[in-house]
Simulated scan of single mutants.
Amino acid sequence: MTQRSTGLLLLFVTALCWGSNWPLLKLLLAEMPPLGARAYAGFIAAALVGVIALARGESLAVPREQWGRVWLFALLNVTAWMGFASMALLWLAAGEAAIIAYTMPVWAALLAWLILGEPLGWAKVAALALGTLGVALLFTPQEVAIGPDKVLGGVMLLAAALLFALGAVIAKRKPLALPPLSAVTWQLGLGSLPLFVISSLWEEVDWAALSPAGWGYFLWMAVGPLGIAYMTWFGALRRLPASTAALGTLLTPVVGTLGAAWLVGEALGWRQWGALACIVLGVALAVRPPPARPRH
């Protein structure tokens, strides 16, 4: 299997795991506060990935000169994304939030063009347009009331999308000089720490009140969307252009919507199926192999 094929497979697993988190997190937040749920799940995910890293013979030691960038990536890829997105859900519906959150591939493609010099090309421009249209079709409610609370939530989600995209692009330009799983372990652990501190000051997590189903949602978030998905995301990012990897995440809202229809009973109409067609076509354009160069 080529590096590109492996990267695409890892990207598909990432989309499945992250997509499953939307309906399950919606159910979990009825029993746990958002930042606490994310922080504790992040710590568990960091511990699991760390154990896997040690079992594979990877060192968890961080050279002194790497600590600054470890913290930078942790804040961009974990704290900002999970923290801002979770807080925004206090003021926005999940559909409104996803419209802004999944603009991340747009910002990643543009930042990769500006910072890395990755060419956009007609296929990626078309993929961006189709993906954005698909997400808008998928999540735009029939009526959107705009007020100060929605503006605040929108700004938070826009910040989450921009900062996560920036983290992906910087990771391509200057990746951490750490073994792969060690890098994921430290980013998850350090990135969850600010969320834990804020949650401890603001929220109250009642573990005794968590139902068996709630425990299942929580543990899956720790193992799947945080543990497995962050490993596969960074694995895909090492093998694919930053813009292609980011565009592949547009499959995430498709998985989330189909999962919500199955688990939460949300209806699937023409807009959902139209969005599915747009996003699948957009991803197909984004991940198509580059044309072979003629030999002279």
Rank of each mutant, 00 (worst) to 15 (best):
R173V: 02
A229K: 01
F12R: 10
V205Y: 06
G50W: 06
A292N: 12
P212E: 09
Y217D: 11
L25G: 15
E118Q: 15
L247G: 07
M231L: 12
G19V: 02
Q272N: 13
L263S: 07
G7D: 01
L166A: 12
A183M: 08
G282M: 02
T232W: 06
M82V: 11
W215I: 11
W202E: 14
P179I: 02
F12T: 15
E143V: 08
V125Q: 02
P23E: 08
I279G: 03
V283S: 00
G191W: 00
R271G: 00
A123S: 12
L162A: 11
A229H: 06
W273H: 11
A46P: 06
W91K: 01
V49Q: 01
R64L: 08
V62C: 09
A109I: 01
P141D: 12
L130G: 00
T6C: 03
K172N: 11
E204P: 07
C17T: 10
A85P: 03
V13Q: 03
A30V: 10
V169P: 01
A98T: 04
A292R: 14
M82L: 13
A97I: 02
T14E: 10
R38A: 15
W81Q: 02
P141I: 12
Q66L: 12
E143N: 03
A161Y: 00
A209H: 14
L138D: 00
L133P: 10
G274I: 03
A80N: 10
W81G: 02
V264W: 06
L166R: 12
M231V: 15
K124P: 05
G224R: 03
L237F: 05
W18C: 10
E204T: 14
L24S: 08
I279M: 14
A126K: 06
V51D: 04
P141N: 15
W186V: 09
L162C: 14
P33Y: 13
P290M: 12
W113G: 08
V155C: 13
G36T: 04
G7Q: 07
L92F: 11
S59R: 14
L54M: 10
V169S: 02
